[in-house]
Simulated scan of single mutants.
Amino acid sequence: MHVRTLTGGLAAALVVSFSLAGGQAVAAPPDAEGASLAARVLIYDAGGSAEFRSAVDRGAAIWNESVDAVELRPAAAGQRANIRVLADNGWPRALPTTLGNGTVYIGRQAVNQGYDTIRISAHELGHILGLPDRKPGPCSSLMSGSTAGTACTNPYPNAAEKTEVEGNFGGALVGPAPAARAEVIVD
């Protein structure tokens, strides 16, 4: 995970105000400089993901490498999770409840057809992070899902997808977080 740190120049630009009367600069207290924006931590429970456990862990790690505003961590024993990941025999899907919360299903049907398990995991976690499907789409778009075909093994979000997640979790200055969804997103 990367933690974004406001550089001295940016911090100074944000905290310095100029007095119109005296033309003097007034700075914020010293502790405001070098302040960092903390990532929102989401806990995922992959205990029910069966043979896909390592793919789920890798999918979470890819998101951690790709964005700063959110961090996915595996649940410790007895810890309450924001995201539950389960394996079943159907098609992969996600059921987001609110931003950063929901259930992911790693469906064996897609795996049996030749789709990459790490791409599936990263894609479904992308739904929990607020991203919609973008179908049809190229392999370079993680959220293109199955439309990229079985030859596509790219598990990384593209720049636009990263920016959208950063915005959803407050790490970038782009629009408000998406509204909660109550429907299953089947990929």
Rank of each mutant, 00 (worst) to 15 (best):
M1C: 07
A13K: 08
L14R: 06
V16C: 06
F18Y: 10
A21T: 11
A25E: 07
A28Q: 06
A32R: 04
E33F: 08
A39Y: 00
V41E: 07
I43Y: 04
I43H: 05
Y44F: 10
R53S: 03
A55G: 10
V56C: 01
S66N: 05
V67I: 14
D68H: 01
A69S: 15
E71L: 14
P74I: 03
R80L: 09
R80P: 01
L86H: 13
W91H: 08
P92W: 02
R93E: 11
L95G: 08
G100L: 11
N101T: 14
N101E: 15
G102N: 06
V104Y: 04
Y105A: 07
I106V: 14
I106W: 09
R108C: 06
A110Y: 10
V111H: 14
N112M: 04
D116N: 14
R119E: 03
H123C: 13
I128A: 10
L129A: 15
G130M: 13
P132Q: 12
S141Q: 09
G145I: 09
S146V: 07
T147W: 08
T150N: 10
A151C: 05
C152G: 12
P155H: 15
N158E: 12
N158C: 15
A160L: 12
T163C: 07
E164S: 09
V165Y: 00
N168M: 05
L173C: 09
V174Y: 04
P176T: 12
P178Q: 14
A179Y: 08
A179L: 12
R181K: 14
R181T: 11
A182P: 07
V184H: 08
I185D: 09
V186P: 11
